[in-house]
């Protein structure tokens, strides 16, 4: 108990004192996760919208694969990204292993099925009659797609938040492909693991508080958006 109290005290000191190491870890985390999230949105949203709107042979299989992707163990994704980007792997020539780029790739692969899956469900929930009506009012295919995304915006917000939550809190894949290099690939989760192992509980707790705060802020934003939609 004493360790925790001592740790919290140190955490408050580090956070309020704007410790440069902490700031660097936050900055790397947000940059890497933010970039991965953008890629996940760029892939996941059109994919989810397409799957929600269009019927085609093999859709069931594709959907099952997507659902599997939503629950795929991140560490296994990390393993494959590691193999693909290692010196002997097909993308070894890029020299991305143990760089933020490798983390972005891994996090994108983790997040995009989540984004696509949630968006697909939201799109499937839209009244088919509405889409037919939009088409009848003169919407082109692209305009129809955009209208659909806008109509499914609540589900899309949930998709983005779920994707972000999954990758900002992920540790296994990031540790594997990023290597937890100080100042370069050390993110909130990997730093917590390292500091805990080294017995620097204050720093670990401080990072934990920050991680929780980020998640909390995101949830507040989501709840506000939901309320705005329902009112």
């Amino acid at each position: 108990m004493g360790t925790i109290i001592e740790g919290v005290r140190e955490a408050v000191y580090l956070i309020t004192g704007l410790d440069p190491e902490i700031l660097n870890i936050i900055s790397v985390s947000l940059r890497v996760t933010g970039t991965a999230l953008i890629f996940a949105i760029l892939i996941g949203m059109p994919l989810g919208t397409f799957l929600g709107m269009v019927n085609f042979p093999g859709k069931k299989l594709f959907t099952a694969l997507l659902y599997t992707g939503m629950g795929f163990p991140p560490v296994v994704i990390g393993l494959f990204v590691f193999i693909f980007f290692s010196a002997s792997g097909p993308f070894g020539f890029l020299n991305w292993l143990f760089t933020p780029n490798a983390i972005i790739v891994a996090q994108t692969i983790i997040a995009f099925p989540l984004v696509a899956g949630f968006v697909m469900t939201a799109v499937m929930g839209i009244d088919r009659n509405l889409l037919r009506q939009m088409e009848s009012l003169g919407a082109s295919r692209l305009q129809l797609l955009w209208t659909t995304i806008k109509e499914a915006r609540l589900g899309s917000v949930v998709a983005v938040v779920a994707g972000f939550g999954a990758i900002i809190s992920e540790v296994g894949a990031v540790m594997l492909v990023g290597g937890n290099i100080r100042g370069r690939t050390r993110v909130l989760t990997t730093a917590i693991v390292l500091e805990t192992r080294q017995g620097r509980f204050g720093l670990a707790i401080a990072l934990g508080i920050i991680l929780l705060t980020i998640a909390f802020i995101l949830n507040i934003i989501m709840i506000n958006l939901q309320e705005k939609e329902i009112d």
Binding site: D127, N129, L130, M134, S136, L137, G138, K150, E229
Partner: peptide
């Protein structure tokens, strides 16, 4: 196609204001 439109039996409106719904076809064009 844009010269023709249908008002369906069960009308479906967008999740936005009535005004935005009414101007929607104009914005499409």
């Amino acid at each position: 196609k844009r010269k023709i439109t249908t008002v369906f039996q069960r009308s479906a409106l967008l999740r936005t204001s009535l005004w935005n719904n009414v101007v929607y076809p104009l914005k499409l064009r």
